[in-house]
Lab assay of single mutants.
Amino acid sequence: MATGGRRGAAAAPLLVAVAALLLGAAGHLYPGEVCPGMDIRNNLTRLHELENCSVIEGHLQILLMFKTRPEDFRDLSFPKLIMITDYLLLFRVYGLESLKDLFPNLTVIRGSRLFFNYALVIFEMVHLKELGLYNLMNITRGSVRIEKNNELCYLATIDWSRILDSVEDNYIVLNKDDNEECGDICPGTAKGKTNCPATVINGQFVERCWTHSHCQKVCPTICKSHGCTAEGLCCHSECLGNCSQPDDPTKCVACRNFYLDGRCVETCPPPYYHFQDWRCVNFSFCQDLHHKCKNSRRQGCHQYVIHNNKCIPECPSGYTMNSSNLLCTPCLGPCPKVCHLLEGEKTIDSVTSAQELRGCTVINGSLIINIRGGNNLAAELEANLGLIEEISGYLKIRRSYALVSLSFFRKLRLIRGETLEIGNYSFYALDNQNLRQLWDWSKHNLTITQGKLFFHYNPKLCLSEIHKMEEVSGTKGRQERNDIALKTNGDQASCENELLKFSYIRTSFDKI
């Protein structure tokens, strides 16, 4: 039985969820670079991206490699990797027998973001014989899940209580170790020597080791999670996991709180800001991140802002960003909400898709409305799209047979046209069989910064309504002859009103 693990408890099935942008060198404390989270699957090609990484700022997932063999891993080693800020997950990587050479110096898994409450997941690794993470000293947050690894031993010899604050939620089941077939031998045991430290858990006094050649490092209890030197002297209180010299914040392997210019500090002093819960960055760093993602459509890219001495992905609820200094300031009234469309555009074809934009005031991208039916549609669209004030790209209304009016965009005031449909149009209306009105132009103002209007096959939309939009939106004169079809717009509506004058002759039985 794995020490510190839980057996036999019912657990939810383990679901495996399925960018080499360097964020800056980590400095003297770390020998390499800070790398983003990685999802490495199918083959070993991307694994080489770990070569210079000291910190993975995010998670590391290595999974679904069915053609790899043990010899493929023999020359692979990433000794610079010290810390993973989120979680480490391995799933069905064939041929991998140990992690001792792959990650010989991995010391800390912070667990800032977890995989279903777990910071370390080893699942269905069919050839893994031992973990071998002999320098792993601290899992700051989260638990361990090690399950269905039929060859995995050296679990009962690990004292997880020396690595985690609590072992109650560890789930370590259905491994070879369960069948008591392992016969784990710690260093020196074969020669009758006791080389590794022994600890007591559940009444068992057991030597602690990761492999037959690597003991588990056990520091004096007084050192807590700070770690200790090879001689057993406690590291500085700002260290986490390990250090090369005692009581020196510049000799830590990793930091308990924050890293700044080669030393570990309790908090980031001005003019620095907390970033990702582990390091200090200056304003320029946060500003660069903001600008890199301002026009990016890459998933996970955030326009970072500053709030409460932190550089964070977005302002919290009730705050909006001051564009001059990136500071989050309290909103006066309802907060603006910028919604970034991942692929640059979004099609609204149902109430469900409209709900995804609920509360958005600025759309960074283009909207395509293609709704053919739905219950209580006008009210639903207004509830979900009615706060949109600005669209950076274009607005396209296409084959939306259920629409009679666009009044559900009740606050839309600006279409920038930074991206144009077919390279020309910022407003595009095609084949809307029941569209009769755009907006009530006596109450609604709309500016279209650039781009043209396109109207074709809107049989109940009168040309007068379209011409009014040209005047109000500032697009009059931009359109070419064929942009607004004269014969297919309003051709099934009563669009022309003329005053009919009647004269009559009164007659009676005795007068003409």
Rank of each mutant, 00 (worst) to 15 (best):
E51C: 15
T157E: 06
H212Y: 15
M83N: 00
G241S: 08
H59D: 01
L233S: 12
T157S: 14
I222L: 12
V218K: 12
T140G: 07
T140N: 07
R113W: 01
Y171P: 00
C182S: 03
P330Y: 04
K224Q: 09
I82F: 06
H214D: 04
E168V: 15
P197C: 08
N202W: 05
I82K: 07
A156M: 09
N325S: 06
F285Q: 11
R208E: 10
Q61Y: 01
P197G: 08
D72V: 01
E314F: 02
D39N: 15
N295A: 07
P271E: 10
N295R: 12
C196S: 08
P330V: 10
E57R: 02
A254D: 10
L289D: 05
N308P: 04
N308L: 12
C243A: 00
E151C: 08
P79R: 06
I82T: 07
D247I: 00
E180L: 15
L136K: 00
R141P: 00
Y118S: 01
T199A: 09
Y30L: 13
F66T: 00
E71F: 13
D86Q: 13
W160S: 01
V265M: 10
N195I: 14
L76Q: 08
W160T: 01
I158R: 03
C234L: 00
S77Q: 10
S323L: 09
P334T: 08
P36S: 08
I185M: 06
E207S: 10
H48F: 07
L81G: 00
H226L: 08
R69S: 06
N170K: 08
Y134E: 02
S317W: 05
C228Q: 02
T45E: 15
W278N: 00
E231L: 10
D248F: 01
R110H: 06
D165M: 14
P187D: 05
M38R: 13
C182V: 01
T189E: 03
C252L: 00
E57A: 09
V108F: 04
L63A: 01
G188E: 09
S161Y: 12
L106W: 01
F283K: 13
L89S: 01
P249E: 11
C335E: 03
P270F: 10
E314T: 10
N179M: 08
C239H: 01
Y87A: 01
N202Y: 07
G300H: 08
P270R: 10
A230E: 14
L136A: 01
G95Q: 12
K310W: 15
L90F: 05
C219T: 01
K67A: 06
H274A: 14
N322E: 02
E314Q: 04
H127A: 06
E33G: 14
T267A: 12
H307E: 03
I185A: 07
P316Y: 03
P271Y: 12
C53D: 01
L327W: 08
C153E: 03
A198R: 12
C328E: 03
N257Q: 06
G227V: 04
W278C: 02
H214W: 08
C53K: 15
N135D: 03
Y319R: 04
V93T: 02
S161G: 10
E151L: 09
T85V: 07
T229W: 07
L63Y: 00
A230Q: 14
P330F: 09
Q276P: 05
L120P: 00
F103M: 13
Y259R: 14
D288H: 13
P197Q: 15
V108K: 04
L44H: 06
C264V: 00
K100I: 08
L128M: 11
Q299N: 14
S213K: 14
V305F: 06
C153N: 00
R110I: 13
S166F: 12
P79F: 04
Y134L: 07
P104Q: 00
N150T: 09
F123N: 00
S324V: 10
K100H: 15
E238I: 02
L63Q: 12
R69T: 05
L102A: 01
G58I: 00
D169R: 14
T250S: 12
V206H: 14
D288V: 15
H28Y: 05
R298Q: 03
C280T: 00
L131R: 00
H307T: 00
H290E: 03
T45C: 13
F78Q: 01
P36T: 08
C315K: 00
D75K: 12
S237A: 12
N135G: 09
W278H: 06
V253P: 01
N138R: 14
E151Q: 07
Y272A: 03
H307A: 03
Y30I: 00
Y94K: 02
L260M: 04
L131I: 08
K217R: 08
D75H: 05
V108S: 05
H212G: 09
C235Q: 00
T250W: 10
R74T: 15
S225Y: 10
R297P: 08
V265R: 11
C280Q: 03
G262M: 13
K80P: 01
C311K: 04
H307W: 10
P313N: 05
P31Q: 02
P316R: 02
C255K: 04
V218S: 10
G188Y: 09
L81T: 08
K193R: 11
H212D: 15
T250C: 06
Q287I: 10
G188F: 12
D261T: 15
S324F: 04
E168L: 14
S296F: 08
R162V: 10
I122E: 00
L29H: 15
L102G: 04
F205I: 07
T68F: 01
P197Y: 10
E49R: 05
R141A: 02
L332I: 05
L76K: 15
M125R: 00
P249I: 05
G188S: 05
D86V: 00
